[in-house]
């Protein structure tokens, strides 16, 4: 009687598609991650010792410097133009992140908040910088 040859089981894990998987993961990370854009205005938000971490989601960024220049996302203007700049937003009632300079007069912040309220925005986040550990606040 002729005995059949048993198949030899190969003990190698196929890794040929590893780079494809890695590149797919890379593309997913690139698409899903939020890259911080270059700010259109140079502002130094106030330093505070303890702040809650704010996970930035896609939203509208408002930059306000001490001299009254404002930028809504990429659009530059003066503080007086804020209502028009907000009205031009493509996603109207978005989350707002306010990057205001620490040296701004409070009336400018109040003006921004009043404009947001007038256009029925519900939430705004005042962005701050956390004081480095072991350093006294200025």
């Amino acid at each position: 009687m002729k005995l059949k040859n048993s198949y030899r089981i190969v003990s190698i894990i196929p890794v040929a598609s590893m780079s494809d998987i890695a590149f797919l993961l890379l593309i997913f990370m690139l698409l899903s991650s939020l890259l911080t854009p270059q700010p259109p205005l140079q502002v130094a938000p106030p330093q505070v010792p303890n702040t809650a971490e704010v996970k930035e989601e896609k939203g509208t960024r408002i930059y306000l410097d001490a001299s009254g220049h404002i930028a809504v996302n990429e659009e530059l203007g003066r503080l007086e133009d804020i209502a028009a700049l907000l009205a031009r937003l493509s996603v109207p009632k978005d989350q707002i992140y306010l990057y205001a300079d620490a040296e701004c007069a409070f009336e400018k912040i109040d003006e921004v908040l009043a404009a947001l309220k007038a256009q029925a925005f519900e939430k705004a986040t005042l962005i701050c910088r956390e004081t480095p550990k072991g350093k006294k606040r200025d």
Binding site: A22, F23, Y97
Partner: peptide, 24 residues
């Protein structure tokens, strides 16, 4: 590719900011 993934994961963490949420 994996080094690039690690890089993007680290960079993504940096976009977390500090601040206060206000309800208008």
């Amino acid at each position: 590719a994996f080094l690039l993934i690690v890089f993007f994961m680290i960079v993504a963490v940096f976009s977390i900011e500090a601040g206060f949420s206000l309800k208008l």
